[in-house]
Amino acid sequence: MKQMICPINGTRPIVEFTCGGDLQSMPDPHCGDTVWADYIFNRNNAPTIKQEWWCHTPSNTWFIAKRNTLTDEVLCTYLYGQEDV
């Protein structure tokens, strides 16, 4: 089974994890409907190396994973804000 490394709990099978979608920054809520629609609906959705939110569900640990969405390789995982640690 495919495995993933939780920064707190270590290497676990992928079924213990849930993907929370792309890491993206929220625009100013007063940005207007067009920009807001772009933010909530549109995605950078061609295959690439992405930063995504993932959660280790038994411990509810949210973290960031860098993943290649063409080959399904997880390049690294880290707690939000601790990429360089």
């Binding site: 676990r12 213990e16 569900t57």
Partner: peptide, 12 residues
């Protein structure tokens, strides 16, 4: 202490 799943259920 291990936080994992058993038979599909999240356990400590």
């Amino acid at each position: 202490v291990v936080l994992t799943t058993m038979i599909g259920v999240a356990v400590t």
